[in-house]
Design a protein around this nucleic acid. Structure first.
Lengths: 148, 148
DNA sequence: TCTTGACTTAAAGATAACTTTAACTTCTAT
DNA sequence: ATAGAAGTTAAAGTTATCTTTAAGTCAAGA
């Protein structure tokens, strides 16, 4: 089964211009062309595009993703480099999850803060509350926010 | 205790130009000035900047963060709106964590894939492996990547 | 064959979030 | 009083990731 750029874009949920842009940037060296110059995406290419999508979601810039694709095109000599890259990216994702988890706790604190403000009619109640008065799970968060 | 823009920037670990930019964009209406026009950051402002930093890390655009700051400046009439905004942002962070967790599993699969390729000397071994041959935890991932 | 919709490229435009530059002012220490 | 570090602004520049536009080409159906 082959797809045009529009069909593949729809399948991936992106704009056709995005795929053309990626191709221009050298991220899609595996895409073949018809006699007339039309891009012909194959099912195997779908998997490449999913990998690109995945790496992009880890926050990897396109030029680094391109490096990865180039290595894959180069063949089995680059297996160790690709492994190292994937490992590094996995660690980076673990860090991001860690950071988001901390941010989540700050937002939970702020939610409590505004819920309290709402029942009391004013933010000055939760704001001026003594450390021991607030739920224990939020004490550390408030200290961090206020700069120790 | 008051701080100049450079001192506060150092305390936060950002460039002074970033704080000036935020101020120009209207995110720092609480910052006062000296007679001569020098910004005077106070300890209470540090907390505001931490909140801005936190919202930024949730992926909120600066113009939305500005809206939040404006509401806070407007006083207790906006408590419910602020609560709603924080709740929405908390949900958004939960979604992001969820998504990153899925991406993490893809990277774990890819790591296994390249580790196997490394011991076998070629990617064709893990690539052409039957679904039942691969670790059960990665079967679903590979199906997703290949498009069912 | 002709029409029409989707394809092609190169180049310009959009957007967010800063950063840099240039010209000038303020503050602090001697 | 003055030097120099750090402050001020407006405006232009940067980077990343696309999107849009313009002018033209390809491919499939009537």
């Amino acid at each position: 089964m082959v797809y045009t750029v529009g069909e593949m874009a729809k399948r991936l949920g992106v704009a056709p211009s995005t795929l053309r842009f990626y191709d221009k940037e050298g991220l899609l060296p595996f895409v073949e062309r018809s006699e007339g110059g039309i891009r012909l995406f194959k099912d195997a290419d779908f998997e490449w595009l999913r990998i690109i999508e995945c790496l992009k979601k880890t926050g990897m810039p396109l030029k680094d993703i391109k490096e990865f694709i180039m290595m894959a095109m180069a063949g089995d000599d680059t297996i160790e480099d690709r492994l190292a890259l994937i490992q590094k990216q996995r660690e980076s994702v673990e860090q991001k999850i860690q950071e988001l988890t901390e941010i989540h706790q700050v937002l939970r604190f702020k939610q409590w803060y505004y819920e309290t403000a709402k029942t009391e009619g004013t933010t000055s109640v939760p704001r001026s509350m003594a450390l021991e008065e607030l739920p224990e799970e939020f004490r550390e968060v408030r200290k961090q926010l206020r700069g120790e």
